[in-house]
Design a protein around this nucleic acid. Structure first.
Lengths: 95, 95
DNA sequence: ACAATATTTAGATAATTGTATAAATGTCTA
DNA sequence: TAGACATTTATACAATTATCTAAATATTGT
Protein backbone atom coordinates (compact mmCIF):
# COMPACT_ATOMS: atom_id res chain seq x y z
CA UNK A 1 0.00 0.00 0.00
CA UNK A 2 1.69 3.12 -1.21
CA UNK A 3 2.35 6.02 1.06
CA UNK A 4 1.29 8.52 -1.59
CA UNK A 5 -2.19 7.03 -1.54
CA UNK A 6 -2.92 7.92 2.07
CA UNK A 7 -1.25 11.28 1.79
CA UNK A 8 -3.43 12.01 -1.23
CA UNK A 9 -6.56 11.13 0.70
CA UNK A 10 -5.56 13.30 3.65
CA UNK A 11 -6.66 16.56 2.05
CA UNK A 12 -10.37 17.48 2.07
CA UNK A 13 -10.21 19.29 -1.27
CA UNK A 14 -8.83 16.18 -2.88
CA UNK A 15 -11.49 13.98 -1.33
CA UNK A 16 -14.10 16.39 -2.63
CA UNK A 17 -12.59 16.12 -6.10
CA UNK A 18 -12.83 12.35 -5.90
CA UNK A 19 -16.47 12.60 -4.88
CA UNK A 20 -17.17 14.90 -7.81
CA UNK A 21 -15.67 12.31 -10.10
CA UNK A 22 -17.96 9.59 -8.80
CA UNK A 23 -20.86 11.46 -10.40
CA UNK A 24 -19.22 11.75 -13.78
CA UNK A 25 -15.89 12.30 -15.47
CA UNK A 26 -14.93 15.95 -15.65
CA UNK A 27 -12.31 18.19 -17.19
CA UNK A 28 -9.75 19.98 -15.04
CA UNK A 29 -11.62 23.25 -15.56
CA UNK A 30 -14.97 21.80 -14.57
CA UNK A 31 -13.39 20.49 -11.42
CA UNK A 32 -11.51 23.68 -10.65
CA UNK A 33 -14.58 25.91 -10.86
CA UNK A 34 -16.16 23.98 -8.00
CA UNK A 35 -13.55 25.29 -5.58
CA UNK A 36 -12.76 28.75 -4.24
CA UNK A 37 -9.03 28.33 -4.80
CA UNK A 38 -6.91 29.13 -7.84
CA UNK A 39 -7.05 26.86 -10.86
CA UNK A 40 -3.34 26.19 -10.51
CA UNK A 41 -3.91 24.99 -6.95
CA UNK A 42 -6.59 22.58 -8.08
CA UNK A 43 -4.25 21.43 -10.82
CA UNK A 44 -1.68 20.68 -8.17
CA UNK A 45 -4.24 18.59 -6.26
CA UNK A 46 -5.09 16.75 -9.45
CA UNK A 47 -1.41 15.99 -9.87
CA UNK A 48 -1.25 14.52 -6.38
CA UNK A 49 -4.30 12.37 -7.07
CA UNK A 50 -2.81 11.20 -10.31
CA UNK A 51 0.55 10.41 -8.73
CA UNK A 52 -1.35 8.27 -6.23
CA UNK A 53 -3.08 6.62 -9.14
CA UNK A 54 -6.47 7.56 -7.75
CA UNK A 55 -7.43 9.23 -11.01
CA UNK A 56 -6.52 8.82 -14.65
CA UNK A 57 -6.54 11.38 -17.41
CA UNK A 58 -7.27 11.52 -21.06
CA UNK A 59 -6.72 14.48 -23.31
CA UNK A 60 -9.71 15.62 -25.32
CA UNK A 61 -8.55 18.40 -27.54
CA UNK A 62 -7.81 21.39 -25.39
CA UNK A 63 -9.33 19.71 -22.39
CA UNK A 64 -8.02 17.07 -20.08
CA UNK A 65 -10.66 14.78 -18.72
CA UNK A 66 -10.27 13.18 -15.32
CA UNK A 67 -11.87 9.95 -14.20
CA UNK A 68 -11.71 7.85 -11.06
CA UNK A 69 -9.44 4.85 -11.04
CA UNK A 70 -11.81 2.57 -9.16
CA UNK A 71 -9.27 -0.24 -8.99
CA UNK A 72 -7.27 1.67 -6.42
CA UNK A 73 -10.29 2.18 -4.21
CA UNK A 74 -10.81 -1.52 -4.19
CA UNK A 75 -7.23 -1.89 -3.03
CA UNK A 76 -7.85 0.57 -0.22
CA UNK A 77 -10.85 -1.38 0.96
CA UNK A 78 -8.89 -4.58 0.78
CA UNK A 79 -6.07 -2.99 2.78
CA UNK A 80 -8.43 -2.20 5.62
CA UNK A 81 -10.21 -5.50 5.49
CA UNK A 82 -7.08 -7.62 5.51
CA UNK A 83 -4.96 -5.55 7.84
CA UNK A 84 -7.63 -4.56 10.27
CA UNK A 85 -10.39 -7.06 9.73
CA UNK A 86 -12.75 -4.18 9.16
CA UNK A 87 -15.25 -5.43 6.67
CA UNK A 88 -18.48 -7.16 5.98
CA UNK A 89 -19.10 -8.62 9.43
CA UNK A 90 -18.69 -5.29 11.09
CA UNK A 91 -19.80 -2.91 8.38
CA UNK A 92 -23.53 -3.20 8.41
CA UNK A 93 -24.95 -3.26 4.94
CA UNK A 94 -28.32 -1.56 5.43
CA UNK A 95 -27.89 0.72 8.41
CA UNK B 1 -16.18 11.19 7.71
CA UNK B 2 -13.90 13.21 9.89
CA UNK B 3 -10.91 15.00 8.50
CA UNK B 4 -8.73 13.97 11.44
CA UNK B 5 -9.22 10.35 10.47
CA UNK B 6 -7.58 10.66 7.06
CA UNK B 7 -4.86 12.93 8.36
CA UNK B 8 -4.10 10.36 11.04
CA UNK B 9 -3.79 7.61 8.46
CA UNK B 10 -1.51 9.68 6.26
CA UNK B 11 1.61 9.05 8.33
CA UNK B 12 3.48 5.75 7.85
CA UNK B 13 4.60 5.56 11.48
CA UNK B 14 1.00 5.80 12.60
CA UNK B 15 -0.12 3.12 10.17
CA UNK B 16 2.66 0.90 11.50
CA UNK B 17 1.41 1.52 15.03
CA UNK B 18 -2.06 0.48 13.98
CA UNK B 19 -0.71 -2.69 12.42
CA UNK B 20 1.19 -3.49 15.62
CA UNK B 21 -2.05 -3.15 17.51
CA UNK B 22 -3.81 -5.64 15.28
CA UNK B 23 -1.54 -8.32 16.72
CA UNK B 24 -2.25 -7.47 20.31
CA UNK B 25 -2.89 -4.57 22.63
CA UNK B 26 0.29 -2.85 23.75
CA UNK B 27 1.47 -0.22 26.18
CA UNK B 28 2.85 3.09 24.95
CA UNK B 29 6.37 1.95 25.83
CA UNK B 30 6.04 -1.35 23.99
CA UNK B 31 4.90 0.56 20.94
CA UNK B 32 7.56 3.23 21.22
CA UNK B 33 10.47 0.78 21.38
CA UNK B 34 9.52 -0.52 17.92
CA UNK B 35 10.48 2.79 16.34
CA UNK B 36 13.78 4.59 15.95
CA UNK B 37 12.32 7.92 17.04
CA UNK B 38 12.01 9.44 20.52
CA UNK B 39 9.36 8.13 22.89
CA UNK B 40 7.82 11.57 23.04
CA UNK B 41 7.42 11.55 19.28
CA UNK B 42 5.64 8.23 19.37
CA UNK B 43 3.47 9.58 22.15
CA UNK B 44 2.53 12.43 19.87
CA UNK B 45 1.51 9.96 17.17
CA UNK B 46 -0.53 8.03 19.69
CA UNK B 47 -2.30 11.25 20.56
CA UNK B 48 -3.15 11.84 16.92
CA UNK B 49 -4.51 8.33 16.57
CA UNK B 50 -6.55 8.74 19.71
CA UNK B 51 -7.92 12.10 18.60
CA UNK B 52 -9.05 10.39 15.39
CA UNK B 53 -10.65 7.72 17.55
CA UNK B 54 -8.63 5.03 15.82
CA UNK B 55 -7.32 3.77 19.16
CA UNK B 56 -8.56 3.72 22.72
CA UNK B 57 -6.58 3.67 25.93
CA UNK B 58 -6.86 2.19 29.36
CA UNK B 59 -4.57 2.86 32.24
CA UNK B 60 -3.00 -0.18 33.89
CA UNK B 61 -1.02 1.04 36.84
CA UNK B 62 1.97 2.93 35.52
CA UNK B 63 1.25 1.79 32.00
CA UNK B 64 -1.22 2.95 29.45
CA UNK B 65 -2.46 0.25 27.21
CA UNK B 66 -3.52 1.00 23.67
CA UNK B 67 -5.99 -0.97 21.61
CA UNK B 68 -7.52 -0.60 18.17
CA UNK B 69 -10.96 0.87 17.88
CA UNK B 70 -12.18 -1.46 15.19
CA UNK B 71 -15.49 0.35 14.86
CA UNK B 72 -13.80 3.25 13.14
CA UNK B 73 -12.13 0.99 10.59
CA UNK B 74 -15.54 -0.33 9.69
CA UNK B 75 -16.61 3.25 9.11
CA UNK B 76 -13.65 3.83 6.82
CA UNK B 77 -14.51 0.80 4.76
CA UNK B 78 -18.11 1.91 4.58
CA UNK B 79 -16.99 5.36 3.47
CA UNK B 80 -15.15 3.92 0.50
CA UNK B 81 -17.85 1.47 -0.38
CA UNK B 82 -20.69 3.98 -0.32
CA UNK B 83 -18.85 6.98 -1.78
CA UNK B 84 -16.81 5.17 -4.34
CA UNK B 85 -18.57 1.88 -4.82
CA UNK B 86 -15.30 0.17 -4.03
CA UNK B 87 -16.25 -3.04 -2.33
CA UNK B 88 -17.36 -6.59 -2.61
CA UNK B 89 -17.95 -6.70 -6.37
CA UNK B 90 -14.55 -5.30 -7.13
CA UNK B 91 -12.50 -6.47 -4.19
CA UNK B 92 -11.88 -10.07 -5.00
CA UNK B 93 -12.19 -12.25 -1.96
CA UNK B 94 -9.70 -15.01 -2.76
CA UNK B 95 -7.16 -13.46 -5.08
C1' DA C 1 7.66 11.89 51.26
C1' DC C 2 11.01 10.32 47.93
C1' DA C 3 12.93 7.97 44.14
C1' DA C 4 12.13 5.26 40.05
C1' DT C 5 9.45 4.25 36.08
C1' DA C 6 5.93 5.32 32.39
C1' DT C 7 3.90 8.58 29.72
C1' DT C 8 2.44 13.08 28.20
C1' DT C 9 2.95 18.05 27.46
C1' DA C 10 5.61 22.28 26.28
C1' DG C 11 8.49 24.75 23.41
C1' DA C 12 11.65 24.95 19.49
C1' DT C 13 13.08 23.73 14.86
C1' DA C 14 13.26 21.60 10.27
C1' DA C 15 10.62 19.48 6.66
C1' DT C 16 6.39 19.10 4.20
C1' DT C 17 2.45 20.88 2.10
C1' DG C 18 -1.38 24.02 0.35
C1' DT C 19 -1.98 28.07 -1.92
C1' DA C 20 -0.90 32.13 -4.81
C1' DT C 21 0.92 34.54 -9.00
C1' DA C 22 3.40 34.36 -13.12
C1' DA C 23 5.37 31.86 -16.85
C1' DA C 24 5.31 27.84 -19.86
C1' DT C 25 3.10 24.16 -22.61
C1' DG C 26 -0.34 22.22 -25.55
C1' DT C 27 -4.42 22.56 -28.66
C1' DC C 28 -7.64 24.82 -31.62
C1' DT C 29 -9.18 28.08 -35.19
C1' DA C 30 -8.74 31.98 -38.08
C1' DT D 1 1.66 31.75 -37.62
C1' DA D 2 -0.84 34.37 -34.34
C1' DG D 3 -4.17 34.62 -30.81
C1' DA D 4 -7.35 32.50 -27.58
C1' DC D 5 -8.30 29.00 -24.41
C1' DA D 6 -7.13 25.00 -21.13
C1' DT D 7 -3.97 23.23 -18.23
C1' DT D 8 0.41 22.56 -16.00
C1' DT D 9 4.87 23.96 -14.10
C1' DA D 10 7.94 27.15 -11.59
C1' DT D 11 8.72 29.85 -7.72
C1' DA D 12 7.66 31.83 -3.40
C1' DC D 13 5.38 32.00 0.99
C1' DA D 14 2.47 30.80 4.93
C1' DA D 15 0.59 27.10 7.53
C1' DT D 16 0.98 22.54 9.17
C1' DT D 17 3.41 18.76 10.95
C1' DA D 18 7.11 15.46 12.59
C1' DT D 19 10.68 15.40 15.43
C1' DC D 20 13.71 16.74 19.24
C1' DT D 21 14.97 17.92 24.24
C1' DA D 22 13.41 19.21 28.57
C1' DA D 23 9.93 19.64 31.90
C1' DA D 24 5.59 18.07 33.85
C1' DT D 25 2.22 14.56 35.44
C1' DA D 26 0.90 10.06 37.16
C1' DT D 27 1.76 5.65 39.48
C1' DT D 28 4.30 2.35 42.33
C1' DG D 29 7.26 0.79 45.97
C1' DT D 30 10.34 1.89 49.75
Amino acid sequence: MDDSLFRALADPTRRKILELLTEKDRTAGEIAEQFPIAFASVSHHLGVLKAADLVATEREGQFIRYRLNTTVFQEVVRYFMTRFGAGEDGGKRDA
